[in-house]
Design a protein around this nucleic acid. Sequence first.
DNA 1: CAGCATCCTCAGGGATACTG
DNA 2: CAGTATCCCTGAGGATGCTG
Lengths: 117, 117
Amino acid sequence: MAARRGPYFCGIDAAMDVVSGKWKSLILWELAEHGVRRFAQLRRGLPGVSEKMLVQQLRELEEDGLVHREVFPEVPPRVEYALTGHGVSLNEALAALGVWGAERIERIGAEKVVYAS
Amino acid sequence: MAARRGPYFCGIDAAMDVVSGKWKSLILWELAEHGVRRFAQLRRGLPGVSEKMLVQQLRELEEDGLVHREVFPEVPPRVEYALTGHGVSLNEALAALGVWGAERIERIGAEKVVYAS
DNA sequence: CAGCATCCTCAGGGATACTG
DNA sequence: CAGTATCCCTGAGGATGCTG
């Protein structure tokens, strides 16, 4: 389900609401890094997502106005995803978290995934 | 359960891991705003949390090194919670998200909660 | 006051198979 | 290629009651 429409306690609450979902922040990140991406490209960039989850999370992000979805009526079908303006600004806000998280990974000596199963 | 110890895809992943949990970011926020807080004070500041959840989330934040818990051996018991250094820096990273979220609340015309049952 | 112990619900998410 | 459609299961989180 996409983000609720409030009521919210504060901005953090609203932002976390929109970004909660196992893959959403990662999808945003991926789109910010690469710009426009096709479905299969995203799938490859997020090792471990199932098709179902990827579609679902993308649709919710679209519904919340963070991602733009463009369908090209071709055979074979092509669908491209990109961030909207709000998606871009959310990503900039997430960047600070990314830095903090990277430091935490160092600190606790966690591994980074290259390819999960 | 507290945050896993990786492996992580990236910093965002690690940060979201630590902050995911329905009340964690709100607890962090509350502690940043007020400094040291007692259990009951936090409870009052987070309308809608159950005792169980508040304890649980606090313990996980403690386990992850973001919150410091101090018990005073008195009767009646007193327990104070405060952010650690890492908690403070995480909160600073969350601030950007808070701003974005506040703008989103404006944009979609969502309500803000004052008191949820 | 600041918890701990239980029980229970429900929806987020995984696995698998099929389609325009 | 880019999805639908189903079934299923785990576990986060809620409700309630008890305690040092």
